Simulated scan of single mutants.
Amino acid sequence: MQVVCLQDEALKALTDRLVEYVKAKHLVKEDKWISGEEAMQKLRISSKTTLQKLRDEGKNRFSQPEKKHILYDVDSINDYLNKHAKNTF
């Protein structure tokens, strides 16, 4: 059996490269526009009313290609979550 030792920085760099390789290899890409259910899951909310309130207040960007079909911008949701993130001490 062979044991390989790496310094913390080398291990992190190797891990980052591996993650990028796997993403590129499997073409992992998140959809730009997601359904209301997916938006609620991403925001960790369970109420459609809360999702509508966020939409009505202009907190999340959305598209309405049909009257009853609303899609939410993933980047807008991520920006909203990052805006409300609290830094550690």
Rank of each mutant, 00 (worst) to 15 (best):
I70H: 08
G58E: 02
H26F: 12
M40K: 11
K48Y: 05
V28N: 06
S47R: 14
I70R: 08
E66V: 09
K32Q: 09
G58T: 03
L27C: 12
L18C: 09
L11M: 15
D31G: 07
K68E: 09
K48T: 03
T49N: 14
A10D: 14
K67D: 06
R17N: 08
A10W: 10
A24R: 14
A39V: 01
D75H: 13
T15L: 07
R44Y: 06
R61K: 15
M40A: 06
L43D: 00
R61Y: 13
A10V: 13
R61M: 13
R17F: 05
K12P: 08
R55A: 05
D56W: 03
D16Q: 12
Q41L: 12
E66Y: 14
T50G: 08
E20N: 14
P65K: 05
K67R: 12
D31N: 12
L43Q: 01
D31F: 04
K42T: 09
K12M: 13
R17V: 02
L18H: 11
E57P: 04
K53M: 05
R61T: 15
L54S: 01
S47I: 08
H26Q: 12
L43A: 02
T50V: 12
R44S: 09
K53R: 10
E66P: 00
S35Y: 02
F62V: 09
K68W: 06
R17T: 07
T15P: 05
S47A: 13
Q64G: 05
E66F: 13
D75P: 08
K42P: 00
D16P: 03
E20W: 00
R55I: 02
K59S: 05
K42W: 01
I70F: 09
K48S: 07
G58V: 02
R61P: 03
H69N: 10
K68N: 12
E37V: 12
S35M: 05
K42N: 04
A10R: 13
H26K: 11
K29M: 14
S63D: 11
R55M: 02
H26Y: 15
K32F: 01
W33G: 07
I45L: 01
N60P: 02
K59W: 01
R44N: 11
V19T: 04
K23W: 06
K29D: 14
H26W: 11
R44E: 09
H69K: 12
K32W: 01
V74E: 03
I70C: 09
T15C: 02
L18D: 03
K48I: 00
